[in-house]
Write a protein that binds this DNA or RNA. Structure first.
Lengths: 200, 200, 200, 200
DNA sequence: AATGAATGAGAGTTCATTCAT
DNA sequence: TATGAATGAACTCTCATTCAT
């Protein structure tokens, strides 16, 4: 339905502009140029349309993850590229990512949404780390699942501080340091195929 | 003033019970057993009393930081102890820490409060890291300020996932892995200065 | 809109009954048999609806003015008729005229409204007086604008004393004396132009 | 009592600054540097202290009146001097005069106060006019009481427009024109002792 | 008599939700 | 299905008044 799409689109605009708590339903219908009442034809309330916004923009909202890694790739470069891609994507959707934080605490449904995505990406990252560990590139003594979550948190949080709260880190330094930390934390060494495996 | 204290105390109870958005001023005055009007004798509004609550519990709310490190201390043990202390404190004030996240996004004042605390602790951590770098215990190529912020973020975020959002990580494993990651990330090695072995 | 009209009508009733300061918005919505919230669909507040009431009854509220005067008319009769018409209109809207006085002092907007009306009528009266001066019927040495304002004030104020404050002047005597004063003040003489005698 | 005097003094300041409706009792006690509760030791409420303010400043609040007239005085000059004195006094107490207008409508007690003063001055003016009529200086066909009230109203109202509402009449022209109108209205002629009595 | 924090009724205002058109 | 005025509960905030100290 055209009206529904207009409402979701408008909701995103309003939420990003005013925040979740301050957004009024009439702001959304005004922005969508629909009647107030039409809102309830498609949604049960604010939470409901916010969920719909999330559904719609799901793909734009990345999660810090290590790229698939071919056998010839330098793992450090892969991590750097992943961080770079994530931070740039975050910068583009900063307002929305902030919203997600705001709403996740008070709204059970959004919290679920967030956790599902987080878990899915976490699993993939954990798998990638385990693969590195199997190949002797990463410290095998580390809990891969926990590390995946923790390192993603680190990158995600720095993105939040930088692009939502406006902390003034320089983009390239940020990427560089985060990559260094991530790589060190897992005991990854560049060209590690031939190098010594990390000491536990 | 007795009334003021009662209001702050009551506000904390109500905020923790109902969340920030759902808390009504009358709930707070009811809980404090004061008249509605008394609220405005001491506070300008909801934001104001929330700030007062934060101020009051400030000391209970730690920030991930490396403890002061004596020359004889094992740096790994110091990091572990810091993480342990932080996570346990977070667990005790989990609901409030969650609120802080929720409110910080929409409320300028609370955001300031958070940033000030964050910056203060960040400086101390950066200083501690620089000291480790100077003593050759930590990788000197890493930006200390950024690393301090990033690693704190990591620990802080995991605490949030665990104690606010209820992700099910086991406490001891969490501490262990975070310590490992933190230590590795900075390139810290145990007893790396040839000093005294860590006291249990 | 029907609701808006009902609110304005109700507001007039409530204002006349309770005065401006004592009128509550819910009294108005109760009287209008509309929901409380509907008030804000049409008005910004009490001042706003009061202005709307004034706007609505503007035509009923005359201002002391000299009627258009044909060449054959007896100027004294014209002044008398004007005064009579004004005093009778004032009597019909006495409560509202009193309100206008009350509110005009504290409310900038209403003050503007009053001044605009006053200025418009003042101009017309001044013009009428100048015309009489030009025709040699009125004392040419008098400042027409000031005189217009002053004589209108005199009549308006006596109406206020009589119909708002309840001073006990007899209607016909009042008209007679005011007319005499007005006419004398301007140095107008009956049939001074040698024209047709006034029709009874 | 010293406190009482301080309150009345403070009330005048606050009323003149904020208007009657906007003045809060705590503003008055703050201004008087007394405790909130002390207000009720001396006054029953806002109306009560306003009455006290009026009582205190009674003498400063003139009413347009014709000065006592000696046999040798030029009546025109006496009227002019009266108007001048009144307008200048009004200018000095403009804010208070405006207050009187504001409150008189809604407050029965103040209305009484006002009416009593008005009546007293009205009587004196009427007496002065009757004396002029007796001496053949003023038109005897005019109702002296009504004329006294009407002409006083005229001067009082012009003072109000000029000094309270800020209408821009030039002081000297104002005095001149009002004097002219007043004198003409009553049929007074300068050096009228020797002149022709006014034709009815 | 003075104090001033505490009181709490009362008023204004907002906005999610409904429903007749 | 769309409309948008109407609804009214819910909530914030003010301030005259009280009363224990």
């Amino acid at each position: 339905m055209r009206t529904r799409a207009a409402l979701v689109q408008a909701a995103r605009v309003v939420f990003e502009r005013d925040g979740y708590a301050n957004a009024r339903l009439t702001d959304i219908t005004d922005e969508a140029q629909t009647a107030t009442g039409s809102f309830y034809t498609y949604f049960k309330g604010k939470q409901d349309i916010f969920a719909a916004v999330l559904e719609e923009v799901q793909d734009e909202m990345l999660y810090p993850q290590v790229r698939e890694m071919g056998h010839g790739d330098d793992p450090v470069e892969v991590v750097r590229a992943s961080n770079e891609a994530y931070l740039d994507a975050y910068a583009r959707n900063a307002r929305l990512m902030g919203l997600l934080e705001e709403v996740a605490i008070a709204d059970e449904g959004v919290q679920q949404f967030r956790r599902r995505r987080s878990a899915a990406f976490g699993k993939r990252n954990a798998k990638a780390i385990r693969e590195l560990q199997r190949r002797g590139i990463a410290d095998a003594s580390i809990d891969a699942a926990l590390a995946a979550s923790a390192l993603s948190s680190m990158v995600g949080r720095m993105a939040y501080y930088t692009y939502v709260l406006g902390e003034e880190w320089e983009r390239d330094e940020l990427i560089e340091t985060l990559t260094q930390l991530w790589v060190n934390a897992l005991g990854i060494t560049s060209r590690s195929d031939g190098g010594t495996p990390p000491s536990p």
